[in-house]
Design a binder for these strands. Structure first.
Lengths: 84, 84
DNA sequence: TAGATATTTAGACAAATGTCTAAATATTTT
DNA sequence: AAAATATTTAGACATTTGTCTAAATATCTA
């Protein structure tokens, strides 16, 4: 729960999720979409992965990232319970 | 949007919202529910207010805080759009 | 009006966060 | 095997964050 809210609390990470919603992307492709260094993107991806929001698969020298939105159900439930 | 995610990214602030869901509370009552100082709670309330998640009303020497969950719709929509 | 109570503001400080460059690791290509 | 490419790891550094104590402000009560 904590790691989820933490992962969502950054505009770059939220944008990464939006891009991954369109299609899977390699780390390099993601880095090219932003104006920050590759290591910084790598770190953001690590935080997203730790929260379960993305998964990664190594394909040769590339690493492809995919979004996983099921973990967001927990956040949805939390918010809905608060509103109820 | 940013201030909303930021406000939610702290366990104490999330707990404050849960308490306020039950009933309105004064700043002092809220502070008594936690093991941190009153100024710290005051600061958390400020962040929640800045995000529009709570409102406050001065009643004599007391300040009563109320939850406002409508702003969470924006977060809900953002998450649902991501899942869609 | 003086003292007590409720809350915030100010300022200090340690820990967490986001960024960078340089280097390491792994894979592919020539 | 050497060079090129893709990505991460390591470590440094500035900024942000959450906490504290002390002091300020406002209201109530004796």
């Amino acid at each position: 729960m904590n790691s989820l809210f933490k992962a969502l609390n950054d505009p770059i990470r939220r944008d990464i999720l939006k891009y991954l919603r369109e299609r899977d992307l390699t780390a390099g492709e993601i880095a090219d979409l932003f104006d920050i260094s590759k290591p910084s993107i790598s770190h953001h991806l690590d935080i997203l992965r730790h929260a379960g929001l993305v998964s990664s698969e190594k394909q040769g020298q590339f690493i492809t990232y995919s979004i996983n939105t099921t973990v967001l159900d927990e956040v949805l439930e939390w918010i809905i319970a608060l509103k109820r």
